[in-house]
Amino acid sequence: MTLRDVQLTPRPGGSPELRGVLGVPSAAVHGGGPWPGVVVVHEAFGVDDVMRRQVERLAEAGYLALMPDLFTAGGARKCLTATFRALAAGHGRAFEDVESARAQLVALAECTGRIGVIGFCMGGAFALQLASPSRPGGPYAASSVNYGRLPGDDAELDALLAGACPVVASYGGRDASLKGAADRLDRGLQHAGVPHDVREYPSAGHSFLNDAPNGPRLLRPVMQRILGVGPEPEAAADAWGRIEAFFGEHLREGEGRGPDA
């Protein structure tokens, strides 16, 4: 596979300049394409080496994977508050930037036009929001929600999940910040009649799908103690297997150019 930094075409209301990271499958392994696409939404720490390797992993699995840098306009320190504000509102610059990535994938000749979304931590909450047909670019063909925060009350969650695309979700049982989230999401998806696969891993904490610790070094001991933050290889291997199987079922349907192409 190849991994390269790219410039994305900005949208009205989005970042005036927008960078991203694109992973392209190996033609020797996965044929010459076209391939389904996956928009990758990064953690609150931004586009670091750990997140770039998540893009690599998806490309190695046979997906065109594009991660927009939601902090292009000024880095995490300047953009984080605005990004979380957009997440709470369900619209705003961050959603337009993600939609730029989705539209760019659809426009690629190497893409089938079927697009999924995957997110981690903050990005997991975006992936859940983007499963809804009411969000910019929605609905996707499938969404992978990884330790993403849920809306505050059940009525809001029910409204978000009405008509949602299929969802595969993974949470850590040691993640004190998201106690009960997996069960609550599972119940909401069942109530909405949405195809889904939700699992909580008792041995895992927050960010367990990462292959290495990340974030500010001084904060890592605190994050580990409170949230159980950090890699959990056994849980991660199982979760990635579920994600790839779920995406294989919902993104490779037909293998031709999708309806949005």
Results as ranks from 00 to 15, higher is better:
1 M>V: 10
5 D>L: 05
8 L>E: 00
11 R>C: 04
15 S>N: 07
18 L>D: 04
20 G>M: 00
25 P>R: 08
25 P>T: 13
28 A>F: 06
31 G>F: 07
45 F>P: 06
58 L>H: 02
60 E>H: 12
65 A>R: 03
70 L>N: 06
72 T>E: 07
73 A>S: 15
74 G>E: 13
74 G>R: 11
79 C>D: 14
80 L>E: 11
81 T>P: 08
82 A>L: 14
82 A>F: 11
87 L>N: 03
100 S>V: 06
103 A>L: 14
105 L>F: 08
131 A>C: 06
133 P>V: 01
134 S>D: 10
140 Y>D: 06
140 Y>R: 01
143 S>M: 02
144 S>I: 11
146 N>G: 09
148 G>L: 08
154 D>R: 13
154 D>W: 14
156 E>V: 15
157 L>F: 01
158 D>M: 07
163 G>T: 06
181 A>D: 11
192 A>Y: 01
194 V>M: 03
201 Y>D: 08
201 Y>G: 06
208 F>D: 08
212 A>S: 03
213 P>W: 05
213 P>E: 04
215 G>R: 08
217 R>A: 13
218 L>S: 15
219 L>Q: 11
220 R>T: 01
225 R>P: 08
230 G>L: 08
231 P>G: 09
233 P>Y: 12
234 E>G: 12
235 A>C: 10
239 A>W: 13
239 A>D: 09
242 R>F: 13
243 I>Y: 11
245 A>K: 15
249 E>V: 05
